[in-house]
């Protein structure tokens, strides 16, 4: 399986040319923020993904903005749970000449299963070409407790491609919870999953001073159950990826490792990358809906991450075969 190299970068480190940019139209004001900062770059293809269940008047201004910024914008309407059309378009982009594919993805407003599918596709495809994904995320304003509506839990499927191994009831479960503000839903997952060991991580430091304290307050049940709590920076996916990989490597020979990211999206991306890298580690999607969806105003802060996907060298492949993936 191909591996990831994860690097934290800034906007100024982005390339001047890309094979494609993927943006996502939604009712969130921040869905155009990245586009407004990068539209002068050269993109051979521009794809705008949209949730086919979302009413077209949900964010008409955003669509107009995106079309103005990218006149050749191609709109893809797809269901949240089926990325087939997205994958077919990515395969089309990959037919471009050259040994390397560079794709810029704004996942600020993108459903989890879509950016997971993009990462999974890149990982699978990279046997044929070098793939570099630049993932951009706009931080939105802090949502106060008064304006926050808790997640009403509907399902806890594995993220496709992050299934982990088939459950073996003789092997204890290690649940690694990424903490956000949905403490009640997290408690429910804890009760359903019944992990014998609980680790937790949360975004700290974060640009908003009250964030970490509130996340701790909302997740008392998880904190009572945890054996390890890691504060990890919001703005460095590389750090989060590194720590989670280490936890997974240290535990997966004795536990069924399940990542349950319920915090901010960059931390979710890190968890998905870990689960994709180690096929015996699962990443679960705590899915549900809110009475009033979260949608703060965009800030000028962004998190940009470069993910390079490479086929392991012959030597590394041999070591993987001999010792298993954990040592790599």
């Amino acid at each position: 399986m191909n591996d990831f190299r994860v690097i934290d970068i800034e906007f100024q480190d982005l390339h001047d040319e890309y094979n494609a940019i993927l943006v996502c139209w939604s009712d969130e004001p921040r869905c155009t923020s990245v586009a407004q900062r990068v539209f002068r770059k050269a993109f051979k293809k521009c794809l705008m993904l949209r949730d086919c269940t979302l009413s077209s008047d949900a964010g008409p201004g955003s669509e107009t903005t995106l079309r103005k910024l990218f006149p050749k914008l191609k709109s893809l309407s797809l269901p949240r749970d089926d990325p087939s059309l997205l994958i077919a378009n990515l395969n089309g982009i990959a037919k471009a000449d050259g040994e390397q594919l560079n794709i810029l993805v704004d996942y600020s407003s993108m459903p989890r299963l879509w950016y997971a599918a993009i990462l999974r596709w890149a990982q699978t495809f990279a046997g044929e070409k070098r793939v570099e994904l630049d993932l951009a995320y706009t931080i939105s304003d802090y949502i106060s407790e008064q304006n926050f509506r808790p997640l009403e839990l509907e399902d806890i499927p594995a993220i496709p491609g992050c299934d982990g191994v088939l459950d073996d009831s003789n092997v204890p479960i290690l649940g690694i919870f990424g903490l956000g503000f949905d403490g009640i839903a997290a408690s429910e997952v804890l009760e359903e999953l019944e992990p014998s060991t609980v680790y937790a991580y949360l975004a700290d430091p974060v640009p908003f001073p009250e964030y970490a304290e509130r996340a701790r307050r909302e997740n008392q049940e998880i904190l009572n159950a945890q054996k390890l709590l890691l504060p990890l920076p919001l703005c460095s996916i590389r750090t989060v990826y590194g720590y989670l990989s280490e936890l997974a490597v240290l535990s997966k020979s004795t536990h069924q490792v399940k990542l349950i990211p319920m915090g901010p999206k960059p931390h979710v991306v890190a968890a998905i990358l870990v689960a994709l890298r180690f096929e015996d580690v699962a990443c679960l999607h705590v899915a549900g809906r809110r009475e009033k969806p979260e949608s703060g105003e965009p800030t000028d802060k962004a998190i940009v991450t470069r993910v390079q996907i490479r086929k392991p060298s012959e030597e590394v492949q041999q070591r993987m075969l001999r010792y298993g993936r954990a040592v790599i």
């Binding site: 749970d81 399902d155 806890i156 594995a158 993220i159 088939l166 999953l193 019944e194 399940k258 679960l284």
Partner: peptide
């Protein structure tokens, strides 16, 4: 349980 079925229902 949840995670067993979770990998069935994600497709």
């Amino acid at each position: 349980g949840t995670s067993w079925v979770g990998a069935l229902r994600n497709k």
